[in-house]
Simulated scan of single mutants.
Amino acid sequence: MSSRIQTLGILGAGRVGKAVGALAARAGIDVAIAGSADAVDAVVAADAVVLAVPLGRYRSLPAERLAGCVVVDAMNYWWELDGARPDLDDPTTSTSETVAAFLPGARVVKAFNHLSGYALEELARRAGNPERIAVAIAGDDGAAVESVAGLVDALGFDPVVTGPLAEGMRFEPGTELFGADADAQEARAMVERFWTTQRGRVVARARAAR
């Protein structure tokens, strides 16, 4: 059974972490932000934890402390920042699945990764506003996905649930939805036609060759 997220921990004090934190505070959610994995007490005690650190540092996450937590993966792989990382550049799996494998027991949900910092800072809108844009969500735990969908809505975006965590591949960097200020209908269409895009074909070929 899902529950409303009333407290939100954010691990990472960069642009994305600060933007999500500001939106949550505006929505009346208690927020705790830690700039590093060394200061996580208040963060891991929250109803949900947003991961907003560079993806290349995911192995520094406090895996044992995050067991049982609803964990929102907002991270992306950037070779310029993370370096060449075959474990994060594997087209046969999503990066969120890699993160989830490192966090056994955590209820990982992918969300917020495909919006730009500007969109998070400036484009949140009340429900029903015709200019409201979407946030795609993927996760294996139904109750966690429902809770994160409620969080997305509370923060000012339309949640678009795409399916299990593996479907997060459809809105990673290099996909049509990544960086797009799309409404819910447009976002669903982009996700659905993933396999017809260049990135989709690359993933399909890699998976077929396994």
Rank of each mutant, 00 (worst) to 15 (best):
R188V: 04
A136P: 03
R4K: 11
A187N: 11
A154G: 04
S2P: 14
W79Q: 14
A42V: 03
G163T: 08
A42H: 02
Q185E: 15
V71Q: 03
T197S: 15
P104F: 00
G150Y: 00
A154N: 06
L120F: 10
A208G: 14
M169E: 14
G9V: 09
G83W: 13
P62W: 10
Y58S: 05
P173Q: 03
D181I: 00
A37D: 12
A101K: 11
D47N: 06
G28S: 11
E80H: 09
R193V: 06
G35Y: 07
P62V: 04
V135K: 00
A24I: 03
E192T: 13
G12Y: 13
A149I: 01
V152Q: 03
A166F: 08
L177H: 07
A46T: 04
A13E: 14
I137G: 05
R59F: 01
V108L: 13
Y58F: 15
A111E: 03
R57K: 13
S147I: 05
G35D: 13
V71A: 05
A154L: 11
T162L: 10
F157S: 06
T196S: 02
L11T: 09
I10K: 09
E167R: 14
M1L: 07
L81R: 15
G17P: 11
P62R: 06
G179T: 01
Y77E: 11
E176L: 13
A52Q: 11
A127F: 00
D90I: 09
A52N: 10
L165H: 10
R4Y: 00
E80A: 14
V135Y: 00
A127I: 00
R170E: 07
R210K: 11
